[in-house]
Write a protein that binds this DNA or RNA. Structure first.
Lengths: 192, 192
DNA sequence: CAAAAACCATACAGACCTGTATAGTTCGAA
DNA sequence: TTCGAACTATACAGGTCTGTATGGTTTTTG
């Protein structure tokens, strides 16, 4: 399953899909950029859609690995429990602004392939759910009333901020989203 | 500028773009669905991109007209000031779930044409800004501390909820977003 | 070394795409 | 009724797209 050409293809495709979108990125562009032959691509993937699914799976793996790492790095630094979520927000802001991405690749995939149950959409769903679960676990540690709702609200604020930045609004959107999330969490902790 | 064929084209295109996306919807599909000849299209629009811009402009007009109407309808019914924003959220939920849209057409346009300053993206930006301003005006009437930040947070929650529903998560996302927005507004009003 | 697997280069099929060219038609207004 | 504008129908140019066919080359492995 693992192969250097395959990996190169998926990584290159990830890069291009992030910047130009899925439909707007042709197979030939990916091949030219990666230096891999077309027949090799179709030896590893039955179709472009399969490649897209592999790209989304790679991205998901990358993201959660990075999130784990960021979470551990914060670990000792955050004395107040709210500090952990705040630091996570800051880290996410860096992650999302580092490469000049065009928004979130999962949200974008939902936009381009939405409205039916193809494997691409299932991957999007899987990612969104996993992210909520991750935040939920972080929140559980902070002993809030309703971690489920709060995790969903946090993810919505995050996605909303990404969309705002993508539309060309100010990058302070992330900070504004962060302060909202912290207010919500504080509200749950005081009213306990 | 106004012409029955032109209107038919834009309306049909709006419908198709909403459901299938922009790149995935060919000109010929729009022509077949609308029953208009190809030369008529290119008499009214120089290119497909121009048609897309017209579609986004129509949608923007529709949306804010509907928003005005909903806002007036609420007007007398909401006794508590928070009630107005809550009722607006409920109305937006209906607007967004009524036709089986695939998310927000402006967010989707940002996903497909992002990362440079084409006219399409400018239209997306214009919409997002106008929506923030609209909410800001509603909030000003409720005398909150920082209407600007609160309006942005509200819009982020809204966009986040739309993305969540688009990804196939529960439609209760809207209600969860609403409760977050109401908490944020209450927080600002009590701490004054 | 030899056999097998992976990969490359090129050409191409077939579909679809945007946009144009051309010629005929409807229809309202001067 | 005649002129002109808007529209239709059809064909097509030129490009791009995904995916395949073919045959040669490299790399790995037994």
């Amino acid at each position: 399953m693992a192969s250097p050409r395959r990996d190169k293809l998926v990584q290159t495709a990830l890069h291009l899909f992030c910047q130009r979108g899925f439909h707007a990125t042709g197979i030939d562009t990916i091949l030219a950029e990666s230096g891999v032959a077309k027949m090799t691509l179709y030896n590893h993937f039955a179709s472009k859609d399969e490649l897209i699914v592999a790209v989304l799976q790679l991205r998901q793996k990358q993201f959660f690995a990075w999130l784990d790492e960021a979470n551990e790095r914060i670990g000792s630094a955050a004395d107040l429990p709210e500090g952990r979520l705040g630091a996570l927000f800051d880290a996410l802001k860096v992650w999302l602004l580092e490469a000049k991405l065009n928004g979130c690749i999962f949200t974008n995939a939902g936009a381009e392939f939405g409205n039916d149950d193809n494997p691409i959409n299932q991957e999007v769903k899987r990612y969104k759910r996993a992210r909520i679960d991750y935040i939920k676990n972080v929140l559980r540690e902070l002993t809030v009333n309703d971690p489920d709702t709060l995790a969903k609200q946090t993810c919505m604020l995050l996605d909303g901020a990404i969309v705002a930045v993508q539309a060309g609004l100010e990058e302070t959107s992330f900070d504004i989203a962060k302060s909202a999330a912290l207010l919500l969490i504080a509200q749950q902790r005081t009213s306990k």
